[in-house]
Design a protein around this nucleic acid. Structure first.
Length: 575
DNA sequence: GCCGTTTTCGGCCCGACTGTTTTCAGTCG
């Protein structure tokens, strides 16, 4: 899909225009167009072919022409012109905290700096002091910015951010009296990766809360220490911001600091049209505050339903809230079991019984134990004989246990030609069969796509595990025509997985939306190799919520009997 | 560059903090 390619060009164009001090609204238009392209669940080429580009809000004549030019020629003339004298390395400097476009442009003009090395040099030899308005503190901040930039260029995983935020909140509560405290920002929206962590609190002694915060043991460095805002950096390079607000403004502040930015801009536009004003203190009519204690106030005043944070990305949730057609999102409590777990039979840490007992303790009705298949030697994949042994043991334990059912399954390798790694006669005996690719990631797009499509045609295969194979921060998705995979999943009645393992979260939110549109069922599995990893289900639920999924879209909200009935239905359908 | 139940021109979301500028520019969220 060309969506992301074009989006990244628009982002670069925005950066260059910013360096050239162009009209900020024009810059914003490019940023907005890039975001729209990134979020679009449809292939931009399809939309271009039906001449409907300009029907997308935010895409006008100029951006539509550039999209068409790129689709036809593979380049955008305007972009080629803009980048003439501006290198990618120079653009990258915009990512340095406390160093903005004005300063970078000035440094480029005065000292011909083009990259990080040049910048460091100009700071080190003191030339930077010759610039107007460049005092001691400012240079100090830039130096710290460079340090921070090199330390933590990467965004952290959602799981890391969750754990850091929870630990911080726990420590803070222990050290000082706090009335309310909650994480906001992209963490509250459940984004798959998080830049920094925003926390919001109320309490009687605001200043003292900030003082306690900046002196927490995990604070390695203090970036800001004011009356209502504190900002610290941990040893791992994670930035945490704490804001203390009045309890009558907590809802407005929570809304404001949860974002996303584009969601908030849309809200303020709507408010303005009704002669209202929204800021982090509340919602105002003329000078009078008419709401802000609860987050809901902001939305109801604008005649909208309250929008769950996971949807606040300006992907249609505002329209849905106005029309009262928001989805009733999946909840943690809807999940009746985990559909992807490994035991000691392959590379997991626990026996069938240990896993089952833990699942029961978590309130599940069932748990699918899906060990690797024979080809995957590195993960001690089971031979057919071992798998038969596992089936027998599963049956024995199921007779013994009450209130929890083990679904004996496998995560069977999809071989390079699309064949499965066990015979159909054996697969037929299993409660649940997940197919996965663990080799040949570098195959050509057509071949990889065909490989998965072929596997989905097998009547005994129920779910495709981690369909795109991406590992956050480590590995790009394999080159796959995901639209075709989704299409075929719908046709064959195969479910696609949200793999909830911390660095997978695969399918992602956008692909979940596409799958839902095609009526494809989603299975959420943790891929846990240890019972201490079963908690990751909440990460999978978060992804599902961001993908607008409801309980009825998700396979493991079904009670055990219905789930089994569903697995058998594919056989009937495919014969 | 986008957009229109005030507008095809003239707007475009809102505020805090910081540093160094004695009145505001730059950066950030």
């Amino acid at each position: 899909m060309k969506n992301r390619e074009i989006a990244s060009i628009f982002e670069k164009m925005a950066d260059i225009l910013e360096l050239k001090d162009d009209n900020p609204f024009k810059i914003n238009a490019y940023i907005k167009a890039a975001r729209i392209l990134n979020d679009l669940p449809t292939d931009i080429e399809e939309i271009a072919q039906s001449c409907e580009l300009q029907k997308i809000p935010g895409i006008g004549k100029g951006t539509a022409e550039k999209i068409i030019e790129y689709l036809e020629t593979g380049r955008i003339t305007k972009f080629e012109q803009l980048r003439q004298d501006i290198s990618n390395e120079l653009i990258a400097l915009l990512g340095i905290p406390s160093l903005g476009p004005k300063t970078v442009a000035l440094l480029h003009k005065e000292f011909k700096i083009n990259n990080l090395e040049d910048l460091k040099q100009v700071v080190a030899d003191g030339r930077i002091t010759h610039l107007p308005g460049m005092g001691e503190k400012k240079i100090e901040n830039i130096m710290r910015g460079i340090e921070l930039y090199t330390l933590s260029k990467e965004r952290m995983l959602l799981s890391e951010a969750l754990n850091t935020a929870r630990e911080t909140i726990k420590q803070l509560k222990k050290s000082i009296d706090i009335t309310t405290i909650e994480a906001a920002g992209s963490l509250r929206r459940g984004k798959e990766t998080i830049g920094d962590i925003d926390i919001l609190a109320t309490g009687k002694k605001g200043k003292e809360i900030i003082d306690a915060f900046v002196h927490l043991p995990l604070a390695n460095d203090i970036l800001a220490h004011g009356n209502t805002k504190g900002s610290i950096v941990t040893a791992a390079g994670t930035q945490l911001d704490l804001r203390v607000v009045d309890k009558d403004s907590f809802g407005a502040a929570l809304q404001y600091f949860t974002g996303s930015k584009s969601h908030n801009i849309r809200l303020r536009e709507i408010a303005k049209r009704e002669h209202l004003k929204i800021n982090e203190y509340g919602i105002f009519s003329a000078k009078k505050k008419i709401g802000g204690k609860r987050e809901k106030d902001i939305y109801t005043t604008l005649h909208m339903d309250w929008i769950p944070p996971e949807l606040r990305e300006d992907r249609g949730e505002i329209e849905a809230a106005l029309n009262h057609t928001l989805p009733s999102l999946l909840n943690d409590s809807d999940i009746k079991g985990d559909l992807h777990v490994h035991s000691t039979y392959s590379d997991g840490a626990h026996s069938l019984e240990e896993i089952a007992l833990k699942a029961k303790e978590m309130g599940y009705q069932y748990i699918a134990i899906t060990d690797h298949s024979q080809s995957l030697k590195i993960a001690r994949g089971l031979s057919e004989a071992q798998l038969r042994e596992k089936i027998a043991e599963g049956k024995r334990i199921n007779k013994k246990l009450f209130g929890i059912k083990i679904l004996i399954g496998t995560e069977v390798d999809i071989k390079s030609d699309g064949a499965l790694d066990y015979s159909d006669t054996l697969l037929k005996q299993l409660d649940l069969v997940i197919g996965a690719i663990h080799s040949g990631f570098k195959q050509k797009r057509e071949q990889l796509t065909k490989r998965i499509v072929t596997a989905m045609k097998n009547p005994y295969l129920h779910i495709i595990a981690h369909p795109t194979g991406r590992l956050l921060g480590e590995r790009e998705p394999y080159d796959l025509d995901i639209n075709q995979v989704i299409e075929m999943a719908g046709k064959t009645g195969t479910a696609l997985e949200i793999n909830a393992y911390t660095e997978r979260l695969d399918l992602d939110d956008i692909n979940c939306m596409k799958a839902k549109q095609k009526g494809v069922k989603i299975a959420i599995g943790t891929d846990a190799h240890h019972v201490d990893q079963l908690w990751m289900m909440e990460l999978g639920v978060t992804v599902a919520r961001r993908g607008w999924l409801e309980a009825r879209d998700v396979l493991n909200t079904l009670p055990a009997e219905e789930l089994i009935k569903w697995t058998k239905s594919k056989r009937v359908r495919m014969h």
